[in-house]
């Protein structure tokens, strides 16, 4: 494989260290080829002659903006719409019904933490729109947050290729929520207007961010180092309002540390915030916000 790789071996190690330090993510030995392909594309977009020139500049001048873009490109996930479908079933059948009594007549905020190119954000907004008659009087706003990156810029545009819209998005939703623009598909303004995107370092402080009733952080827990997981979970615990929920992937768990969430998931990968929040909310931790497990907990063990 070395014949197709262009970087000095020492640069791979340096890039792995950079990714661990900036994002808390440990790249594996098998990421060498991924580093080449993802960063070559970034180098072209950044106007460099080749990948080596970009990496030389990154490590010789230590440009922060370039470092963030490099790490973001390395961490970009191959996202698809309605990925891990069980999570959306839980959202629609368990979490939103549980929160509806508290937020009827108000706004419920959902955050996609590490939203990459936005498929999770738009899928959630579509689900909310499809269920608006089921939850009258509850406005749902969806926000996506991630490191500043080319993927996040694409998410903000709401523009997807014809390959991307065919991964997980039912055709009826495509024609209801997207317009065809040239060869691409662009999210309609009616849906786009209910969505926000934020640039933010996922490991840094979140003091300037508002609280959310549901935070989705699904499918990426395993790639973070243990110290980074603790840091992220502490941040997420602060970001989630009391009575709110943390959604991990349906096969992910918090393990032994609960970070202010209830110990047992209310649904696969789904935890209720039972501790204090930093929103100043006076809402009571009432039974109204807890999903009725016997009637609404969906058993996926046989799925």
């Amino acid at each position: 494989m070395s014949g197709v790789l262009s970087l000095q071996p020492s640069y791979y190690e340096a890039l792995k260290r950079l990714t661990l330090e900036l994002a808390g993510v440990k790249l594996g030995e098998d990421h060498t080829f991924l580093i080449e392909t993802r960063l070559s594309a970034l180098a072209r977009k950044e106007g460099f002659e080749n990948l080596s020139d970009m990496i030389d500049q990154l490590f010789s001048r230590g440009q922060t903006r370039l470092a963030i873009h490099v790490v973001s490109a390395l961490l970009e996930r191959s996202a698809r719409f309605f990925n891990d479908r069980k999570g959306y079933d839980v959202l629609g059948e368990t979490l939103l019904p549980a929160l509806h009594p508290l937020y009827r007549g108000g706004q419920l905020r959902i955050l996609s933490f590490g939203c990459s190119s936005g498929q999770e954000v738009y899928s959630t907004a579509i689900l909310a729109d499809q269920m608006k008659d089921v939850f009258p009087g509850m406005q749902i706003e969806v926000t996506g947050v991630d490191y500043p990156s080319l993927a996040l810029e694409r998410a903000k545009e709401g523009r997807f290729t014809h390959f991307e819209v065919q991964r997980g998005l039912p055709i009826r939703y495509l024609i209801e929520y997207f317009d065809r623009v040239g060869e691409d598909w662009v999210v309609k303004e009616s849906l786009r207007s209910r969505i926000r995107f934020l640039d933010h370092n996922l490991l840094s402080g979140i003091e300037d961010m508002e609280t959310y009733q549901i935070v989705m952080f699904r499918g990426s827990l395993s790639q973070y180092s243990p110290p980074a997981i603790v840091r992220i979970m502490r941040n997420l615990s602060r970001l989630i309002a009391r009575n709110g929920y943390l959604m991990l992937g349906s096969d992910e768990t918090l393990g032994e540390m609960n970070f202010g969430f209830n110990e047992a998931p209310v649904a696969p990968g789904c935890y209720l915030k039972v501790g204090k929040d930093n929103s100043g909310s006076q809402e009571d931790v009432s039974e109204a916000s807890r999903p009725a497990k016997t009637s609404q907990y969906k058993d996926y063990s046989a799925a």
Partner: peptide
């Protein structure tokens, strides 16, 4: 869809798209 199709694949496609649909 009105004629009774359940899903719709736009060419070109790959195996992931067929499986997804």
């Amino acid at each position: 869809l009105d004629a009774g199709a359940d899903e719709y694949v736009m060419k070109p496609f790959d195996s992931d798209i067929i499986e997804s649909k």
